[in-house]
């Protein structure tokens, strides 16, 4: 009986200490020290309207933008998820085949051999903000054709927007698709 009473008291105490106190203390510190990150690394346009988050992928379906990875949730960031296809799932094969056909139609300049696998696969989160630098380069001929921009200029843009491995070995080189398209728009506006 005594154990039960002590259990109840210590549980409520830890609920207050670890559940409320700890979380609120970290929130307070974070809002003072790192307010930008703590609010979700939001990106604003020149008028101050929030146009996305630097960390969260956004849906780009129009052909004159750089496209991100496949997302079964279409980058709806109030949730997250992927279809969880196992390598042997028949629908995986169907989806990839369809993507390859679509690629051939929209990017006749680039052979399928140069089509990187990250553009054909669903990311884990459905919100992947990045593509590989190869995946960005493979889209340059299409965007150049549709916007009239020089391929060299786009090549430079991709290079500028590529983040290398941290310390030279950690993680993978990546291009943030939202940033890339924001810069692309800026160049086009000029």
């Amino acid at each position: 009986m005594k154990v039960l009473a002590s259990s109840l008291r210590i549980s409520l105490l830890f609920m207050a200490l670890c559940g409320l106190g700890y979380n609120l203390a970290v929130t307070g510190m974070a809002q003072i020290l790192f307010p930008e990150q703590a609010d979700g690394s939001l990106v604003q346009d020149d008028d101050g309207t929030v146009i996305g988050s630097r960390l969260i992928g956004q849906l780009f379906s129009e052909s004159e933008f750089f496209h991100g990875r496949i997302s079964s949730i279409e980058y709806q960031a109030d949730g997250s998820g992927s279809p969880n296809y196992a390598p042997s799932h028949p629908e995986l094969m169907e989806r990839v085949t369809a993507s390859v056909e679509e690629w051939k139609m929209n990017n006749p300049e680039v052979s399928v051999r140069d089509l990187p696998i990250d553009l054909l696969t669903n990311s884990a989160s459905g919100l992947d903000p990045d593509i590989s630098p190869e995946a960005a380069r493979a889209q340059i001929p299409r965007i150049s054709r549709l916007t009239g921009m020089e391929p060299q200029q786009l090549e430079r843009l991709v290079q500028e927007q590529t983040s290398q491995r941290t310390f030279g070995f950690l993680g993978e080189p990546a291009v943030n698709v939202l940033q890339l398209n924001i810069e692309l728009q800026r160049l086009l506006a000029r």
């Binding site: 990875r69 992927s82 969880n84 296809y85 390598p87 995986l92 390859v100 399928v112 051999r113 140069d114 089509l115 990187p116 696998i117 990250d118 054909l120 696969t121 669903n122 990311s123 884990a124 989160s125 992947d128 990045d130 593509i131 590989s132 190869e134 993978e172 990546a174």
Partner: peptide, 13 residues
Amino acid sequence: IQHEQGSMEGKEV
């Protein structure tokens, strides 16, 4: 296709 990256279904870049 270009599959140097390995198995990327369900992974993040």
